[in-house]
């Protein structure tokens, strides 16, 4: 008898809850845009936040509402943008892939130090105290904040200097934000040349403390004036100009601080 009652009671409770859940599922039903699932499947799903939205789901919702563009997903780049354009019916857009660029070429072996830093092992912390012990107050500190920030495993630390994997890099910009010295920037993927120095120190100072730093000799500016310009003791490239032959400048640069992939 007890067994019968317990089965009945438990079964009844279960049934009531099941009925309640069934009713609630109908009552609280949410009309989702059918494109949402398709868009979510296309997006990288790493929730990196580079687009400015709170994760991929948020981006997808905003895309459907028309608040962001199909090219808004920086991590997905060209491929994702084209697929999204197909879903949203806005094909024919041209999107340029970009690449993170390290504007420093001085690895552990070359960097000169004026003191030994032994504090917290992050660039952000080291940068606060005596420039992390480095003579150069513009160059890479080498504790790998960018390496830790990269959600796509595109940065390797080689001899204390980050190296970007051009195929894995999605130009999400996480490393750009992570670097306390603003050494990293994004350049168009089509441009294989970059200036691997960030130092605004005058030439003689750079010459003393770094063998691979820009000494602002202006040779590059003379050889390829379309692209290079020396401002604030530093050679600055116009990365948007692609297809210009920079080889003479790369060859003649006395400290070899202009690099090519």
């Amino acid at each position: 008898m007890v067994i019968l009652i317990s089965i009945l009671v438990l079964g009844l409770i279960g049934f009531i809850f099941a009925a309640l859940l069934g009713l609630a599922a109908g009552y609280f039903k949410i009309e989702e845009d059918p494109r949402l699932a398709t868009i979510l499947a296309i997006l990288p799903g790493s929730n990196c936040g580079a687009c400015g939205s709170a994760g991929c789901h948020d981006f997808a919702e905003k895309l459907i509402k028309g608040e962001v563009l199909v090219s808004g997903c920086l991590a997905g780049g060209e491929e994702v943008a084209h697929k999204l354009a197909q879903v949203m019916g806005t094909e024919g857009l041209v999107i340029h892939k970009r690449l993170a660029t390290i504007h420093c070429g001085a690895n552990e072996k070359v960097r000169t130090k004026r003191s030994n830093y032994s504090g917290i092992g992050t660039c952000a912390a080291a940068n606060l105290i005596d420039d992390g012990g480095l003579n150069c107050k513009y160059g890479c500190l080498g504790y790998g904040d960018c390496f830790c920030a990269c959600p796509f495993d595109a940065i390797r630390m080689v001899d204390g200097l980050p190296v970007i994997d051009p195929e894995k890099c999605t130009a999400c910009g996480k490393c750009v934000v992570a670097c306390p010295r603003a050494i990293i920037s994004l350049r168009p993927y089509a441009n294989p040349v970059w200036v691997a120095c960030n130092s605004r120190d005058p030439g003689p100072v750079v010459r003393k403390i770094c063998p691979v730093g820009c000494i602002a000799c202006k040779i590059c500016e003379k050889l390829v004036p379309e692209v290079f310009k020396v401002t604030n003791n530093l050679a600055v490239m116009d990365y948007t100009k692609t297809g210009i032959n920079c080889d003479p400048a790369i060859e003649k640069c006395p400290t070899k601080c202009i690099l090519k992939l």
Binding site: L10, F17, A18, L20, L21, A24, A25, F28
Partner: peptide, 14 residues
């Protein structure tokens, strides 16, 4: 156990 499982589902839907 039944109650809690069902309730959490309900709360989630709500």
């Amino acid at each position: 156990i039944l109650t809690i499982a069902a309730l959490v589902q309900l709360e989630e839907l709500y």
